[in-house]
Simulated assay, not measured.
Amino acid sequence: MNSPARHAVDHALSKVPELTLGFWIVKIAATTLGETGGDWVTMSLNLGYLVGTLIFLAAFVVLVAAQVRARQFHAYLYWATIVATTTLGTTLADFCDRSLGLGYPGGVAIIVVLLAASLAIWYRVGGTVSIESVATVRVEWFYWTTILFSQTLGTALGDWVAGDDRGGLGLGYEMGAAIFGAGLVVVGLLWLSRRVSRTALFWAAFVLTRPLGATLGDLLDKPLAQGGLEFSRFYASGILFAFMLACIMLIPQRAARRTSAV
């Protein structure tokens, strides 16, 4: 490739946002919304985990298809798709852990395998799993599949640590949030040190923000007897949605630059 063309490739825009502090604030809000929203559909509306999973699966497919068809990064479309992965991840993890009777350890083990397989296949096909490479149809489908599995794993991890049934560790929602928050602090320090792969740290942080959001969501809407604050799932979801929307409007959302690694 000649120099001008190569320069154009290296500086082309990705279809995912730049990794800033604002990105992670919106991400945590989206994951918490996914927990309360998923529980509202499956529990408050009594639709069950299977029906809830099918509903959010349909939304996920439609939004990913729209994201793939888009020619450039659109903040509202991107974050709507992220919310679809968080709600689907919530109901899918609950369906595996509870409806299928796998328990939290079993659900975590299966989803870890799925996430590892998604990353391995993506890397084998594309040579990188960096988010800056998300600019082609094939890579986008790998990206969103991996995002979905990471969200589902995060939900399962949060339930496993906080829950006291189905093989859970029974540490409670507050302790669970503290543990995953501490994990994010460690990832952040490693990010600043620049001694560990930024791509590996991104996926670690993406997984860890999900159980943090899940435990925060459970803390908001679970009954007092179970250690929660017993807020209405509907109103909690509405407040989180308004907060997330305000963040998207007020915090700059810029497309990431592609890397020459792609």
Rank of each mutant, 00 (worst) to 15 (best):
P105K: 13
L88Q: 11
A178F: 05
L119A: 15
A80N: 09
G167E: 13
A156I: 01
D164K: 03
L119M: 14
T85A: 12
W160A: 13
I111A: 04
F73M: 08
Y173A: 01
L192S: 14
M175W: 00
L184G: 14
T128V: 10
L77Q: 13
E140L: 15
F202L: 11
D164I: 02
L190D: 08
T136W: 00
F73N: 10
G188Y: 04
F180N: 02
T128M: 12
A117K: 05
A117P: 08
L77Y: 04
W203F: 00
Q72H: 07
A204Q: 04
G103I: 09
D94T: 07
G170N: 10
W122Q: 15
L171W: 09
Y104I: 09
L100A: 00
G158E: 10
A117R: 06
S197C: 01
Q151K: 01
F180Y: 14
F202H: 05
V139A: 09
S133I: 08
V112A: 08
G167A: 10
D159A: 12
G126I: 10
F95L: 15
H74R: 05
V139I: 07
R195L: 04
L148I: 12
T81D: 10
Y173F: 12
I110V: 14
L115E: 13
Y78L: 09
R195H: 05
V108K: 04
Y143F: 15
T87P: 03
G101A: 11
V113E: 07
E140F: 07
R198P: 06
V161G: 07
D97S: 08
L115W: 14
A93K: 12
L148C: 02
V134T: 14
A109F: 03
W141K: 07
Y173L: 00
V137R: 01
A156Y: 03
V134L: 03
A135W: 01
L77H: 08
T85I: 10
W122D: 14
G188P: 04
G168M: 11
P105T: 02
T199A: 06
R195I: 03
R124C: 07
L184P: 12
E132R: 14
R194I: 03
L169P: 04
G163W: 06
L114E: 05
F149T: 13
A200T: 08
G127E: 13
L114T: 06
